[in-house]
């Protein structure tokens, strides 16, 4: 039973991953990302991480992917890959490098696998257990994370504001620099 679930979820995750990077339309990519996230949530459940699985669904699927879709809509779904690729060498290089990395990682997993799996109780990975740890041992990083979120909100507001319509705004001189360099 577990094996079947794993196989299905893993297959879904890989298919979603390929979908993200291979699809022409950003909307399809976003939906593929949603598929990956769902599958990973299922895998998390298999690994006794109920709380993480819930977070995965709520935050990633519920918030982040929606944000992606929102931006895609805002930008009229233009992928922008219209000009000819100026980094032609990157395709073979990326494939070779990615292959190397995959080989290294898989080799490591292959070589180092074999450790036993610890037996855990029923409360392992529940929201209560993770929360207990967050609010005791990781209290300070937790608070720091909240500050980070606040900073992120402020940054997004600042960046997202429409630019002031002054001639010294960043846009004009940038183009000037660019023109001169070319």
């Amino acid at each position: 039973m577990e094996l079947v679930i794993f196989a299905l979820a893993a297959l879904g995750a890989v298919a979603g991953g390929v979908g993200i990077i291979a699809s022409r339309s950003p909307v399809r990519s976003a939906l593929s990302l949603l598929l990956v996230l769902g599958c990973l949530a299922a895998l998390s459940l298999l690994l006794a991480a109920q709380f993480i699985a819930a977070l995965q669904i709520i935050i990633y699927a519920g918030a982040i992917v929606i944000l992606f879709l929102f931006v895609v809509m805002l930008l009229h779904a233009r992928s922008g890959e219209t000009a000819p690729n100026r980094l032609g060498w990157l395709t073979p290089a990326g494939i070779v490098l990615g292959g190397l990395l995959l080989a290294g990682l898989l080799g490591t997993v292959w070589a180092r696998d074999g450790g036993g799996v610890a037996s855990v109780g029923a409360e392992f990975g529940t929201a209560e257990a993770v929360g207990q740890m967050l609010f005791t041992t990781f209290m300070l990083p937790f608070e720091a994370a909240s500050v980070l979120l606040l900073v992120g909100i402020i940054a997004a507001v600042i960046i997202g504001r429409p630019e002031p319509a002054s001639p010294t705004a960043t846009g004009t001189p940038r183009r000037g620099v660019e023109a001169r360099k070319r």
Partner: peptide, 19 residues
């Protein structure tokens, strides 16, 4: 993207060293 490729290459070198 070329910077990202450089990062990846560096990662592979470090990983290779550790392995």
């Amino acid at each position: 993207r070329s910077y990202a490729a450089a990062i990846l290459a560096g990662t592979i070198v470090v990983l290779g060293y550790w392995l």
